[in-house]
Design a protein around this nucleic acid. Structure first.
Length: 151
DNA sequence: GCCAACGTTGGC
DNA sequence: GCCAACGTTGGC
């Protein structure tokens, strides 16, 4: 899951109540569908810093809630406000994400050098999705590079 | 700031 | 439903 550190960095996640944040602001249907349909509580999350000086994986996290409506879609003052969404017919669903571990930064440049990570969807040409699935083998490879248990 | 790549919009 | 125009993403 990509996050711009100016919005929510791994340190912001660590400082959040319960080290847990609602993943607000996703406004892409494919990314929404991953949160709404594919994620389960306890699923592992690679926390990726994007649109910053050093893009890369900054820590491990996990899905901490069932899907629920993104509250920012109803808030006219929010940058993520969606005038077409109503509480009766929400358009954007999200999950909460809880920190497991801050890690060293695994830079995008290093990720590209690792053959075992070559299949990661985030590394594919033209990928722009802010949420992409990770296979168990990819997860284990990243954890090994970060010196983290793969549990 | 550039630009490749992709998503969304809206006229037809 | 097609598709051109436009907007967004995100690394560099």
């Amino acid at each position: 899951m990509k996050s711009e550190p100016d919005d929510c960095s791994i340190d912001d996640l660590a400082a959040a109540p319960g080290q847990c944040v609602p993943w607000v602001g996703v406004r892409n249907y494919q990314a929404r569908n991953f949160m709404r349909d594919a994620m389960r509580i306890g699923d592992g999350v690679l926390f990726y810093h994007s649109s910053c000086a050093q893009p890369g994986i900054a820590g491990l996290a996990e899905v901490a809630s069932a899907p629920h409506p993104d509250p920012t879609q109803f808030d006219p003052a929010s940058r993520w406000h969606d005038p077409k969404a109503t509480p009766a017919a929400p358009r954007w669903m999200l999950v909460d994400v809880r920190l497991r571990a801050r890690t060293r930064l695994l830079p995008l440049t290093e990720m590209r050098q690792r053959p075992e990570l070559a299949s990661l969807q985030i590394l594919q040409r033209g990928n722009r999705l802010s949420i992409t699935p990770v296979t168990p083998a990819q997860w284990q490879a990243v954890c090994a590079l970060l010196g983290q248990p793969a549990r």
